[in-house]
Nucleic acid binder design. Structure first.
Lengths: 216, 216
DNA sequence: GGGCTGACTAAGCGCTTGCTTAGTCTGTCG
DNA sequence: CGACAGACTAAGCAAGCGCTTAGTCAGCCC
């Protein structure tokens, strides 16, 4: 019982992170596991509570409903991906490099987080209309990032693309669909999947022949 | 039995198609609608029965369980797609044409049948292990068709592909993912989606530069 | 006609669901 | 110390679930 004397590890932020944030995070992890295993509707709130080490009623202190948990998962997932690809694009000097990094990052995320990726796609329709709208807004942001890079490349002559919007959709399919077929222990690692999807995606849009390029 | 002489309309197969097959088909349509609208677990057997114009108990005369309905939908969907692409490939003189027709057919099917396509992908985990295995077998058949066409093209020099299995996966993603984002009234028709996906897919694998080529 | 078959229904069983209520316990602050 | 806040639980409610039971009814065969 010495903890009172010197204080544990987090003395500066006692009312936020230590108890509440922790339990909230544990609940989201538990819900992600359960939803990924059995789907949203087949998952019971009792199951989520048990996985988080709480009683069934304990869930409702942190989330208003089971759907609120699904939304929290979806929103955070989309925000994480959006931030990652924005960062990847910003750091790149040319459209080709920007697109390569975007596709690699995007694909790798969907392999590493394939559980959340599937939940976000497969359970989308179980969100309330308002929450669906919020997620759609985030998706449009992500689409916009890809489209801007593509148009930049077309403008600079690096890319040759017939139908920009169709190609954006195809590139997104390439990355998002990774969550559908990936599973741990598969032949390629998430990083390798990112690398091959980047080169496949570039081949889909590059004006120059695919061989012997990339820098200079 | 020469009942063909005077009998009603279907004298040769009276105990099959007229009543039973009709109701079975209606039930599968009803289940497809309901599963697509609300997902497998959120759909009640009462809902399916009502959509098919039956009492709740009427469902169980034709299908042993709600899961059996999902399996029937999945199995028939996969078989339909498999048969379509096998036919498309068989009719083509070159690997390039075979792949083009395959991608077009495959993509168009996923647009036209996006409801069944989503059910088949999103609700897969709710099948019994035995039924999952049966579906996986059908999927492997489909993968095999694509892989064979790709290897034929590589052998003939028409295609240049680094990693055949990764490319097969990418091509399948392109087509399957159509079911995720398609909805009626969208800019492109299912046939147009098939056409653009065919040319995008060919660009992904062709040995020659994408512009103005295909046959020397 | 009498017996049979098979599609179909009314009623309902046993159980599980999401979520609530009423209360306990711990720790903090004046 | 005593008041209070907030994380948490035991118990449970009303509703809804998949599926069954027991029976009706139309058509067919002998």
């Amino acid at each position: 019982m010495l903890s009172t004397v010197s204080g544990p590890v987090r003395p500066a932020v006692p009312p936020r992170l230590p108890g509440v944030g922790d339990t909230q995070h544990r609940l989201m992890e538990a819900a992600a596991d359960a939803f990924a295993d059995k789907g949203f509707h087949a998952t019971t709130t009792r199951d989520i509570a048990a996985r988080a080490g709480l009683s069934p009623a304990g869930v409702y202190i942190h989330f208003a409903s089971k759907e609120a948990l699904l939304f929290a998962l979806s929103e955070r997932g989309h925000e994480a991906v959006r931030d990652l690809i924005v960062e990847a694009v910003e750091a790149a000097p040319t459209p080709a490099e920007a697109l390569g990094r975007l596709l690699a990052t995007f694909s790798q995320w969907h392999a590493e987080h394939y559980r959340v990726g599937r939940i976000v796609q497969y359970e989308f329709t179980h969100l309330t209309p308002e929450h669906q709208a919020a997620v759609r807004r985030l998706r449009r942001e992500i689409d916009g990032v890809v489209e801007r890079v593509l148009r930049a490349g077309v403008g600079s002559g690096a890319f040759a693309v017939d139908d920009v919007r169709a190609t954006v959709l195809a590139l997104l399919s390439l990355c998002v669909d990774v969550a559908r077929w990936y599973e741990p222990g598969i032949r390629r690692s998430p990083a390798q999947i990112g690398a091959t999807n980047a080169s496949l995606g570039l081949r889909l849009v590059s004006a120059a022949p695919p061989t012997a390029v990339s820098r200079e």
